[in-house]
Design a protein around this nucleic acid. Structure first.
Lengths: 193, 193
DNA sequence: ACTTTTTTACAACCAGAGGTGTAAAAACAA
DNA sequence: TTGTTTTTACACCTCTGGTTGTAAAAAAGT
């Protein structure tokens, strides 16, 4: 009775995510999105409602991946200092957000103008809060395991690590040399000693 | 013989700088610049040649201030650990880049699309390099004064501090709570212990 | 085969971008 | 005052942004 769609909304979301990740929300134009996804304007609007709707969908997709790769290791029961180090080393590896000078999509978005949209702003704040809490959780684990100085302020350390993620994202997007980024991360992790 | 300008290019540059600082290069439109400076399009184009020309002029103005406030203290003869701490505390104070969620103009520009312009990219790279070298210089001073662990890698620490400036700028622009920023900076400075 | 429903392709829309052309206005030398 | 030069004000241009309308095309139930 109805004509089925010629494209898979999931792969379209994936491709749109890649574009937003590379160029940011405002930097990715509808023409870019058409080209990248192979779907015409009307198809995108019928499916996602608006450019921002598509962006929110892409954010969800990104968050899902980030939960697997970053948050889950930090939030897991036995997480401690090793989990924290693993996350940062993963982020600076080829698999992480360094590839293609993309950085972290939420960090990028947090600095941009899209945050004037309440929905986007809420999503960004939520992610960053969860990230900070993830670090706090893993830090408590590290303390319990005796891997952390007893005089350290855990809340301050969690804020520090969250800021470090933002700094890492900024350096990645700025195309800073790999050596500099590695120095940055290694020194930051040494702050836990 | 010639009709003199009705505006002072210096104050126009200042006002344009403020706008670019708040909204970024692409975020500041010609209409915004006209409104902010009180000068018409033709006046701006006669004086600065193009939007990018005006931006480069504003960058120069910003750099001049940054040299006074940030680089000079780091590069001065007796600079050491106190100079580094002073710079970061100044940046997190009301006088610094935190005011109005502006962050650091060079860091902001480094993450943006304007860097596809070779002139802009060169200016940004030059500033960041000088900043890193300023930290390295002050770190050498700190070591000489015995204010630094002897086993620390100075180059890595300098890269770390430069990254910390980028992280601070990102947090400021993202409108992160002051407490979090203070935690971030204090913990980063403790990494010098 | 016909009808219905939805997707498609294409063009158009309106707002805003950066940049420019034109002619009036203003200052100073003569 | 006149003439020259440059700045101004204002409209305009072209291009691109996101968004929407229209009509052809395609599947599935009857």
């Amino acid at each position: 009775m109805v004509r089925p769609r010629e494209f898979d909304a999931d792969v379209v979301t994936d491709r749109a995510l890649n574009l937003f990740w590379h160029k940011g929300y405002q930097g990715a134009s509808l023409a870019d999105l058409e080209r990248e996804t192979g779907v015409g304007r009307k198809g995108l609007y019928n499916t996602f409602g608006s450019k921002q709707g598509l962006f929110l969908e892409a954010l969800t997709r990104y968050e899902t991946r980030a939960i697997e790769l970053i948050l889950a290791p930090l939030e897991s029961e036995g997480a401690g200092r090793a989990a924290i180090e693993h996350v940062f080393h993963m982020l600076t590896s080829q698999e992480g957000q360094l590839k293609g000078n993309r950085g972290c999509l939420f960090c990028l978005t947090a600095e941009s103008e899209v945050t004037s949209s309440p929905e986007v702003a809420k999503r960004v704040r939520g992610y960053l809060r969860r990230l900070q809490q993830g670090f706090a959780s893993a830090l408590r684990g590290a303390r319990t395991a005796g891997d952390l100085g007893t005089q350290k302020d855990l809340e301050a350390l969690a804020d520090f690590l969250m800021g470090t993620v933002m700094g890492l994202s900024a350096m990645a997007r700025a195309g800073r040399p790999r050596t500099q980024i590695v120095h940055y991360i290694d020194t930051a992790l040494a702050a836990l000693d």
